[in-house]
Nucleic acid binder design. Structure first.
Lengths: 212, 212
DNA sequence: TGTTGTGAATCTCTTCACAGCT
DNA sequence: AGCTGTGAAGAGATTCACAACA
């Protein structure tokens, strides 16, 4: 791993793993690059390039061994780091995310959820314990959690981010449409749902007009 | 519109609009490229390039007129097409999306929601009427809806997509981790939540290790 | 024959640098 | 002085093309 691995590649590796696990469950033991690429919507060359950064080598006779490949990708994601996350904001979206991630990824578990509203805390939602935000910083520190998901209303996003930074988080997935500011050395990714839907609408329109 | 506009640019235009509307609400009337770029996390040059594809010209004295810019971006998204969307899958995520989008984007309105489960249909959730999937195709056709959001469980994603295609949809936003197959001429964008969170976890770990 | 692994070419997006304007 | 608009350079990601191999 001499050069830094691109975000796009990391995304695809995550996707490959899930597809491969599905195939393994079906009893398949090996796969060719063009088969995998057909399932992900990419190209065979791209799959091979991704394998390259993984450092995993296939055979030209049988392609890639599925079990070994899953293990390689697992190793890549597991690294030697932590995989605990917290969620901030237990609104509609927050609760949906808790339900969604309950037991979904082997490399990521939401350990605790937080909200300012007292009615939402002190209970367990989809297997996740909910606390008031006051306890955010101490809990992050005690449990050495390094990833956080922000699902609070727009106005609260920045102050939530500040708290997370104070707690020593290293990565943030931000669902609030506001772009948050954090010091260098902290990774931030934004999922802006409004943007996504407007984008699809734009291209849908474009395709629609092309049809006429 | 001589050359095709990139997805990245469309994403940023959506973001600009929201930021600019916030500024307009605060009474600001004009903005410089470097100010806008600071708010989006981009560069001033990038903002200027985006303005270029928009066809909007600022002045070197006052920068960009906020009201006019909002209008330009609105025109860009509004086009002459439709902005009705449907949602398929009224689970945790689907309901959260209905709540989220209720009155959020002026260029996109979720007109109807669908689910296979009878208990979830026949009522109104967050202002959106819910129907059984049987009515999906006729309703899409009747209302000439061109955008759809898929929030169904993994296994149902492809058959949902098939129905949408049958109904004549032009764009799909797919939240299921499965990559769906559709004929050419239909735009598909995937939001893969597991992937996103694994990506953040990976880079969080990386940053964390770099700190030591 | 069909595959992988890989350097090179290509394509796409971002950033630079500077002329022209106010 | 400081800004915008813009062609060109730079970076980054994808795809091609082909040698080596089973």
């Amino acid at each position: 791993m001499i050069d830094a691995i691109s975000e796009k590649t990391v995304e695809r590796l995550s996707l490959y793993r899930r597809i491969l696990e599905g195939m393994a469950a079906e009893g398949k033991t090996s796969i060719f690059s063009h088969q995998l690429s057909a399932l992900t919507g990419g190209t065979a060359a791209q799959v091979r390039q991704d394998m390259r950064v993984l450092g995993y080598n296939g055979s030209s006779a049988n392609g890639y061994d599925i079990a070994q490949l899953i293990e390689s990708i697992g190793l890549f994601f597991r690294g030697k780091g932590c995989h605990k996350a917290v969620l901030v904001g237990i609104g509609n979206l927050g609760r949906a995310l808790l339900a969604y991630f309950a037991g979904r990824s082997p490399y990521m578990e939401i350990q605790a959820a937080f909200d300012t509203e007292p009615g939402k805390t002190g209970r367990v939602i989809h297997g996740c314990r909910c606390y008031p935000v006051d306890e955010l910083v101490p809990i992050i520190r005690r449990e050495t959690i390094c990833t956080a998901i922000i699902a609070v209303p727009d106005q609260a996003a920045q102050q939530t981010a500040d708290l997370l930074v104070e707690g020593g988080i290293s990565g943030i997935l931000n669902f609030a449409p506001t772009r948050i500011h954090v010091p260098a050395g902290i990774y931030v990714d934004n999922i802006d749902l409004t943007m996504s839907v407007e984008k699809v609408a734009y291209f849908a329109n474009k395709k629609f007009k092309e049809k006429e």
